[in-house]
Each structure stands twice: as C-alpha cells, then as structure tokens.
Design a protein around this nucleic acid. Sequence first.
RNA 1: CGGGGUGUAGCGUAGUCCGGUCAUCGCGCCUGCUUUGGGAGCAGGAGGUCGCAAGUUCGAAUCUUGCCACCCCGACCA
Length: 491
Amino acid sequence: MAKQLTTREQNYSEWYQDLVIKADMAENSAVRGCMVIKPYGFAIWEKMQSALDQMFKDTGHVNAYFPLFIPKSFFSKEAAHIEGFAKECAVVTHYRLKNTPDGKGIEVDPEAKLEEELIVRPTSETIIWNTYRNWIQSYRDLPILCNQWANVVRWEMRTRLFLRTAEFLWQEGHTAHATEKEAREETMKMLDVYGTFAEEFMAMPVLKGVKTANERFAGAIDTFCIEALMQDGKALQAGTSHFLGQNFAKAFDVKFTTKEGVQEHVWATSWGVSTRLIGALIMAHSDDNGLILPPKLAPIQVVIVPIYKNEEQLAQISEVAGKITSELKSKGISVKYDDRDTHKPGWKFSEYELKGVPVRIAIGPRDIENGTVEVARRDTMEKTTYQLMDLSLKIEHLLDKIQQNIYTKALEFRDETTHVADSFDEFKKLLDTKGGFIRAHWDGTTDTELKIKELTKATIRCIPLNEKPEAGKCILTGNPSIQRVVFARAY
RNA sequence: CGGGGUGUAGCGUAGUCCGGUCAUCGCGCCUGCUUUGGGAGCAGGAGGUCGCAAGUUCGAAUCUUGCCACCCCGACCA
C-alpha cells in the first residue's frame, strides 16, 4: 500500500492536499505560493479549456491576448477597482540585474529603475479598457466580444493547490456594448454558459445568484456567480460574471457615437473562471480511494489492464485489447492500454482508481476463453463481466451513465446539505452541525452581513436568481426581508 | 501579515531536550530469479551538503542567530 490517502473523515483538507499530489495533478514549486501543474492536472485543464472555448465561440466571442504588465497609473483610474486589488499586487520596479561588487552574486541594478512601475495583472480590465478606447469610435464598432486565456497574479498570503495560489490560470472575457440592456444580457448569457459547463461537463450542480455589495467585484455594478457545494459542506465560488456598467468606460474615457450622432460611454461586462475549477472538481466528487472524474473531463476515459502469466497469454489479450481500443477510439473515447510489465494488475487498479479513470477494463485468460471482459466503474466501484459483443457501445453508454450518476449524487448531496434557518440560533446550530448552504432572511444591509460573518464565519454566497419573493424577518436584526439569501462558510 | 507547527535519501520517518562510530527504519529505486484475476516474494545493490547561511566548539542533524519553504488557525481573496 504505497499511496494511502488521508481519509476525508480524518482530515478533509489533508485528504485534498494528498489527493492533488498523489494523483499527480500538481505540486508546490520553488516559488512561494505558486504551483506546478503537472501533466495529469493540466490535461484536465485542457479539457475544461476546450469545452469552454467552444462555448465562448458558439456565443460569438473571439480570443485575443493582452499584456501581462499594466502601467501603475492605469490602476488608479477606477477607484473601487484599485481599492479591491491594491493589497495583492506584484510590482515590477526594475528591468536589469548586475553582478554584485564581489563578483559572486547578482543584484538588482539600481540604475535600471523603471520610470513608471508595472503591475503584474491581477485581472485585465484596466489594460483592456485602455486599449478598447482606441478600438471604439462608432456604434458600428460594437459590440466587442473578446476573451483571453491567461495567467494572473494575486499576492495571496495563504495558498492551497488549485484553490488559491499566487499565480493562476484563467480565462477572462471582456465585452463592450452600446446599451445597458445588451451588456446586462451578455452578463447573464455568460453566467448561463458557466452554469451549463459546471453541470454538464463537471457534473457539479451550481447555484446561480447575485453577490451582495460587499462581495461584489471591485469596479462592478453587479456581480453574478455560480456557487458550488463541496463535500465538507463548504461553498466554493466557481465562476463570476460582472456587469460593469459604464464604470470602466468612464474611467478610461471610452465613448462611441450613436446612430443619432450622440457621444455616449460604452457598457461593459467581464467574466471569468480559473484553474480553481479543478479544485472544485476534486472536492465535489472524489472519495477516499482517490479522484472521481466525470467522463467528459477525464484525460483517460477507459483504461485496459491485461492479466497474464506468460507471453502467449499477453499476445492473445493484446489482440483483443487492440480491437477494443480502436473501436472505442472510433467513438471518440480516450483509451489507454496499459501493458507495462513493470507493475502488477493490482497495482494498476489502485493507480487508476487514484487517478479517477472512469472505466477500467481487465482482460485475463479466463476472459479470452469466455469471450468476455471485466468492466469496473470508478464512481460506484462496481465490477461486471461483459460479453465482447457490442462492447464499445456498452462502454459508451456506461460513460454517459457515470457522468449522470456523478451529477445526481452531487445534486442529492447538495439538496440534503441545504437547509432553511428562521432564527439566528437555528442558523448557528446548522452551521456548526451540518454546514452546507443555509437559506435565511437578511435585511439587505452590509452591516448585518458583516456582523453575521464576524459571529459565524459564514458569508452570503449569493442572492439566488429566479426565486419567488418571500417576505420574512432578518435572522439577526429582525428587520423586514423580501427574500431568502444563501449563506455558507466558504473557500 | 499575526499566532502555532514542521523541515533528516524520491516519499514517510528515528535520532535533536542531554554535542562525540547515529546518520535509523519502512516504502520507492537498480540487478537477478520466481511471480501476475486487487498495491507480489526472495537475494543482492545504489542513493543523504541532516532546509539554507553564518556562529559557538577540538568536534554540530543536535546549541545560538538570521534566512527560506511548507502545513494548520486567523485577517484578505477566485
């Protein structure tokens, strides 16, 4: 037993940490707060990227790339924005190194000080809006629907692999529109894209809602989000879509001439998801044996393991495995035939369970005799013997079933872990005993929100969309409330 | 950034209080043979600036100082 995980029961955050490292997804690097995303973890990100990228293209967006560095002065142009990010910016002050006087080391050359310091982007609104000013003159230039895949840096004090690191990978969409209505529609459209992606690809149910003023993106009018629930009952913000109003257009003086010949500021949105989604994926589904990946995002969907005593048997098995492999590949299913002789079957079984490969096919001498294979599914750990006839079709259906089952399981968990509280005592008790989402009334003030956070560590994750208004009384102050909001302790 | 903890071979560790054949054990790795339907067995072998840097000392994994990294808790955040 080489790679035992800490169990979730023992210590949830150690379990997570163990899993990320032992499943070979990522590791800490020599640079504080920064991670190395290893090939297996990056393969998951690539799958996410390609699905999302297609969804962005399907909704009319194009990719572009903006600089890593942002002149310091750009940052100060939007007051709320700078206030939100100032405390976590990496700053470039010099552009050259030189040998130390003793010739043994190297130091920053004080002669090479930048006239204007550069900020390593924590997000790109400012550089993008400064650029858009030159792209936009007329209503004919609108809308602009750009996305970029990039890295950003936020100087975090406390980091956790994938969930929070000083540098992370993400995509950020930045759009410019002629009207408020259009920008608002764009904001919601992209929130829906994220919701669909989370549910259909990640098999992770999400709650869509609006952030409170306190939780809003620095510089936004409204921040919408998808919130997911992890197995330990903590919430995780999985994606955000912001309606920026004319804040950045005004800050960067981006105007256009309308059909009527009037100069107006343009309307903006921005939206993003990051490698944090990988952390969400892990915590939403996996178990004490390792990762459980939804087939749609699994780098390897099916692994075939031969079981043999001699070369002759291996040759027979490999022939069958080869046929299965090509049939599955022709259906677009990714397959790995692991015929390494350096590890025993049992070892391989554990290894692929740890890595969350959805379906394992084992083929041994008995199967060759009987014209069967043993199929094991990762989500339920069930093993079934299948006839070779129509195997690829059956596997294709099984993958769909697994995708569905993982989602259903996560949805049931979320439903069971969502509670209603009508008093503050009840609220506190639920938080401490069950965790999860708690639907409660709130009087709408930031003061109350902060007070609740101070008392319980719970934050308002969102004000859910599409909910029927329901009059009630704030759990803390007793003041009137028009609808329930969703509280949770969060990542 | 505040409080606490940890750092010894690729990984996990013993030894640190009480300085002196103490660099220990397990996994992994390499070679060979036997094995192969749930993390194989036996035999042999390789591998360590004891996180880094100064200092104290005849002598430092062990004591002192500084630094670095990671983990946990808090504040902040995707």
